[in-house]
Amino acid sequence: MPGYHSAIGPQSIHTSGTTIPPMNSQRRRLLAVSGGALTGGLAGCLGFINRNEDLEFSSSPGSVSQDALDSTGYGEHEIEEAPVEETFEVAGQSRTVRLTNWHAQYDRAVDLQLLDRFQGAVFSVFSTPKFEIAGRSINPIDRWDTDRIVGMVQDRYEGLADLRRTGEYTTPMLGAEPTITEYEGRADITGTGVTIDLQLHVSGAVDHGDDFLLGLAVYPDDLPGEDDAVRTLYDGIEHEG
């Protein structure tokens, strides 16, 4: 699938005496953290699948419609596989379970006084298979509350701190009306010495087709109207599963 290319190149930016590292690496870290955290959280659950054969389950990627992207100014950065593989012992023999998850990543440039312009507003969609056995889904992600999800993200991104719940709302997503939990916090922008206040919006998992999907948004606190943009992105999530 085509990637999204920022107008900001790999050069460093100098503002107010602060040298900002290449925005591509900073954007990559912000975008990748949610997918990496969720994939890592799933990895510890696979050993509970007590079967006598190797197992493999795959999800279909989620995405955001072009209409939603156009109306919010976001662009596609990357849609990539987020696989998990775990090997464990059953009756003295090694068994392997493989999951193919997907992480879709979108962003847009924002203007901040200290940092000039960078890809600081991020929206991601994570899909993971239900991996049913005997008709019963044993993927734990639909039992994770948003506090647990945010805790995983915070553990993955060391510069994220002081996260606290501030509210919640419901919004359309894939034919459902999931509750989106809002958080406030602070984040260090890697290599700059600059800390910004930010907002996080996190959905619980939505059951759609053969998969579970959830969405996560991160953006600087002082962006006017961004909460409406995030609702549009949630409503624009698409999935063939």
Results as ranks from 00 to 15, higher is better:
A229N: 08
A82V: 10
R148A: 10
A205L: 06
I149L: 02
A91M: 02
T166P: 00
L233S: 12
G225T: 06
M1K: 05
N101Y: 13
G3A: 07
D162S: 10
A205C: 04
I189T: 14
D222C: 09
Q119D: 12
G175W: 00
V125C: 09
Q93L: 06
L174Y: 08
G225E: 08
D210N: 13
G62T: 13
T39M: 11
F88R: 15
P2R: 03
P2I: 11
D221L: 03
T190V: 13
L216S: 01
L31Q: 07
F126Q: 12
G9Y: 08
G92W: 10
T195M: 02
D210E: 09
R28I: 09
A82I: 14
M173V: 05
G75L: 07
G40T: 05
S71R: 14
S124W: 13
G204V: 00
E56C: 03
L223T: 10
I237K: 04
I149S: 06
T19R: 03
Y183I: 00
V230Y: 00
A109G: 09
E158W: 14
T232M: 12
N101H: 10
S63D: 14
A104M: 11
A187K: 06
G159A: 12
S94K: 14
C45I: 08
H77I: 10
L69G: 01
E56M: 15
N24A: 08
G3N: 02
V202G: 01
Q105D: 11
R51D: 08
W102V: 15
E86F: 14
G47Q: 11
R95D: 09
G191Q: 05
L114K: 11
P83Y: 09
G120H: 05
P21Q: 10
P178Y: 11
T146Y: 03
A121P: 04
T15K: 15
T166K: 00
G241L: 01
V84Q: 14
V150Q: 02
G185A: 04
V84R: 08
F88T: 09
S25H: 04
T100V: 13
A161I: 10
P172M: 11
G209A: 03
T128D: 13
D207M: 00
A91C: 02
I133T: 13
G209W: 05
F126G: 12
V202S: 03
Q154Y: 00
I180S: 06
D210I: 01
T190N: 08
Y74G: 07
D162H: 08
P61Y: 15
S6K: 02
A205E: 04
S65H: 08
Q93H: 12
A43Q: 08
T87K: 15
L174H: 11
T96M: 05
T87N: 13
S58P: 00
T19P: 01
E86R: 15
G191I: 03
A205K: 12
R186D: 13
H208F: 04
I196S: 04
L174R: 12
T128M: 12
E226L: 00
